[in-house]
Design a protein around this nucleic acid. Structure first.
Lengths: 191, 191
DNA sequence: CGGTTCATCGAAAAAATATTCAATGAACTA
DNA sequence: TAGTTCATTGAATATTTTTTCGATGAACCG
């Protein structure tokens, strides 16, 4: 049997998950708390027993996204380009195996980009700054000759935005398969 | 001097443009009609003299986006891959020269993807189906050997989502330059 | 010029949405 | 078992947002 505390925690998770799905598919502003409540089969009022407000619920999701973000570290790779391959492959595997992950990914990107995001939540989301993270790796690859020439920031940006564009679609519609990681890595690879 | 009719038309355009900017930066649902009115310095009430409702305004934008969409046609190119290069180059030039274009691009993508979009508007937006448009060109390139092997739809999707990811960022933040068209075309190019 | 149209505003009404609350009964605790 | 806690609901309230409306004066038209 499930203790009351456990049950409460489970219910909380259900809400969080439902909110994640809705925020990603319709956006935070367009999602009504009644939508969330409906999806987990509870009265709207009860949702406020679990979360102080719609905004707090959003904040919690973004915090979870921040916690769960793995920062890229390339030590294990011989070449910079291998790092990109590993990273992308890994990301795509996760996205396929754990749809939640893909959704969280998109939620964070949304929270960062969207100017409608409440300021304090946006700040939290902004702590994940992947483009910057990739810059030194691009520079390393350029010294090596495995990554194409050009402004490292622009290259890093091109790669990352592409990943995001793909994740964004995949998160809400798995009809079309994810591409091969190599295809995307070719954005940065030197020929 | 400006006739009254001209002035009205100009004002209408101002509203449309302000709405475009806001819908793209905050999303349709998060944008209040007062935000739009404020941006063009008019009372909220007056906005309804120009547009029947917020939703109709959105609809008009999406219709404009549909009208303005140029369908890709590859006849002029010798190889399929050249078509991708031309297309991407051209798109990026437009996006740089006419920020409105980049924004419209993002608006349409949003309207298509977002499940919160009013059904009849979504339908209009859906008429732009670029992924399908690219499939025959990918197939042509595969026969030729200029485009990599794999499911044409998956390839087309990868390319298109990448473009969109980049446009999405560029539309709201021009700090980072657009990448070289060739970098992106390397997603589909056969080595 | 005199009458009509219409862009404009600000305030009021309507509609949608978020949040609170009192009541209930089932689960827990002693 | 008796008393307490607390998950739950549905309805009431608060808040936000959209939309309507009457009044005003400036532009237009004959």
């Amino acid at each position: 049997m499930e203790t009351r505390k456990e049950q409460k925690e489970r219910r909380r998770q259900e809400i969080i998950y439902a909110a994640l799905e809705l925020f990603v598919s319709k956006g935070y502003a367009a999602t009504k708390v009644t939508d969330i409540a409906k999806r987990v089969n509870m009265s709207t009022g009860l949702l406020f027993h679990y979360f102080e407000s719609k905004e707090k619920l959003y904040e919690e999701l973004v915090r979870m996204g921040l916690e769960g973000t793995a920062y890229p570290a390339g030590q294990a790779c011989e070449h910079a380009i291998d790092f990109f391959i590993q990273f992308t492959t890994q990301l795509f595997v996760y996205m396929q195996q754990q749809p939640v992950m893909a959704k969280m990914f998109v939620l964070m990107a949304e929270a960062q980009r969207n100017e409608g995001t409440p300021a304090h939540i946006r700040e939290i989301a902004m702590q994940v700054n992947t483009i910057e993270q990739f810059v030194p790796i691009v520079e390393w690859g350029q010294r090596e000759g495995t990554i194409r020439d050009g402004d490292p920031k622009v290259i890093s940006n091109a790669f990352w935005c592409s990943i995001q564009g793909i994740a964004e679609r995949y998160a809400t519609n798995q009809e079309i398969d994810l591409p091969q990681a190599e295809w995307l890595v070719d954005i940065v690879r030197k020929k």
